[in-house]
Simulated assay, not measured.
Amino acid sequence: MSEKRDYYEVLGVNKNSSADEIKKAYRKKAMQYHPDKNPGDNAAEEKFKEANEAYEILSDPEKKAGYDQFGHAGTDASAGGGGYSYSGGGGRGGFEDIFSDIFSSFGGGGGFGGGQRTRQRSNRGSDMKISLTLTFNEAVFGVEKKIKIKRKEECPVCGGSGAQKGSDVKTCDQCGGAGQVYVRQQTPFGTIQQVQECDKCHGEGTIIERPCDKCHGTGLENKERTINIKIPAGVDNGSILPLRGEGNIGPNHGSTGDLYVYITVREDTIFKRNGDDVYYDLPITYAQAAMGDNIVVPTIDTKIKLKVPEGTQNGKVFRLKGKGIPNVNGHGRGDQYITIKVEVPRKLTHEQKQILQQFAQVTGMDSHPEGKRFWARVRVEEKEKGPKKSV
């Protein structure tokens, strides 16, 4: 099986293209490769399908965000949960409006196309959204969770038909099962023909003589389910995990929508996260900073010895390469950054004060080059300004 092409390449746009630009590019491709314009051309048909697939993802903000971050893995329904995405809402991306325009250009009206094409009703179920809170460690290393959801499933009594047992579901005699009818109106400019939803079957194409007592003819019921979610290592606060086919089922034995899990990550008491990197402040004593020390420090998954050289200054940052958070796409790990915070004692004993005074007398000014340079600059500036004038 050949590898899928980049969706932006398929439509001839880029990641910064607006929704209108993506829609315009798709319309152009659909018009170019539509089977009605290329009868018997298998290559054109494949390109038409490819454009449809690309537009379905890029026209949906939620799916587009998942694709931008994770590529095809963020949209693949076979990926054991379907990849991972950020932000946005569901929807069909305006397909019906675009196809209506395309079909009209081939000589037809509305959604029928050429006067012969009946509208294919979308029976896809609606998407669902839930929130899930993780600890810092669960987000960093991944975890499996069981969650309870309530979703629409087929009614067990009527099997999703919406009709009582022994009752017929008949094709609507007004629209012939299309769910749509032509309506002609006389105007000063002539007769205008439009397509409208059939008012007899309400667009379903069928009529139920005796509705099911349990579901009242909808063919659906609300059901509580417990499902397993596998959270990948490296997800972050604000991530969205799409579970393909775990949403509501559509009417008339339609397909199921998706379930989007919005992830919130609680802050850790030690580590701060920025992308795949982690940060924290390491407090050390004045003596450790001055004389150096080997300090055992925590990382997100173990403890290591950090060599603090003598003379380490407050604010010094140490980098531990590859000790950060696993990348959610499997591209290695981030780094860990440790910032030194030298603690100055707030209260000193009489003995401690004497020792520090002795230390100050021994070291003198020469042991503090930064201070020496600072006061030298002060003296130069005062000399340049000249003596103060008395008022």
Score class of each variant (00 low, 15 high):
residue 384 E to M: 15
residue 132 L to P: 01
residue 176 G to V: 02
residue 17 S to K: 07
residue 50 E to M: 08
residue 207 I to A: 05
residue 346 R to G: 00
residue 146 K to M: 08
residue 195 V to R: 01
residue 259 L to W: 01
residue 317 V to Y: 03
residue 33 Y to Q: 03
residue 153 E to W: 00
residue 26 Y to H: 13
residue 391 V to I: 06
residue 92 R to N: 14
residue 149 I to Y: 07
residue 264 T to V: 07
residue 381 E to M: 08
residue 324 G to N: 01
residue 232 P to L: 02
residue 295 I to Y: 11
residue 13 V to I: 15
residue 259 L to Y: 01
residue 73 A to L: 08
residue 340 I to T: 01
residue 195 V to W: 03
residue 196 Q to L: 05
residue 96 E to Y: 09
residue 96 E to H: 08
residue 74 G to R: 02
residue 128 M to A: 06
residue 284 I to H: 01
residue 343 E to Q: 14
residue 271 F to M: 06
residue 192 I to D: 08
residue 369 P to S: 13
residue 374 F to M: 13
residue 102 I to T: 02
residue 332 G to K: 00
residue 53 E to S: 04
residue 100 S to E: 14
residue 65 A to S: 08
residue 136 F to Y: 13
residue 256 T to D: 09
residue 104 S to L: 02
residue 9 E to S: 14
residue 5 R to V: 10
residue 320 L to F: 05
residue 340 I to C: 04
residue 390 S to E: 15
residue 335 D to C: 03
residue 71 G to I: 00
residue 158 C to G: 08
residue 52 N to T: 10
residue 202 H to D: 13
residue 301 D to M: 02
residue 331 H to Q: 15
residue 289 A to R: 03
residue 76 D to L: 02
residue 34 H to F: 06
residue 338 I to V: 11
residue 97 D to S: 15
residue 28 K to I: 14
residue 388 K to H: 12
residue 113 G to Q: 08
residue 302 T to E: 12
residue 246 E to D: 08
residue 308 V to N: 04
residue 68 D to F: 00
residue 305 K to Y: 06
residue 16 N to D: 15
residue 10 V to R: 01
residue 46 E to M: 09
residue 314 N to Y: 00
residue 111 G to M: 01
residue 350 H to K: 14
residue 230 K to F: 08
residue 54 A to C: 09
residue 6 D to Y: 00
residue 17 S to W: 02
residue 8 Y to E: 09
residue 344 V to T: 10
residue 265 V to S: 05
residue 240 I to H: 04
residue 231 I to V: 12
residue 208 I to Y: 01
residue 207 I to K: 03
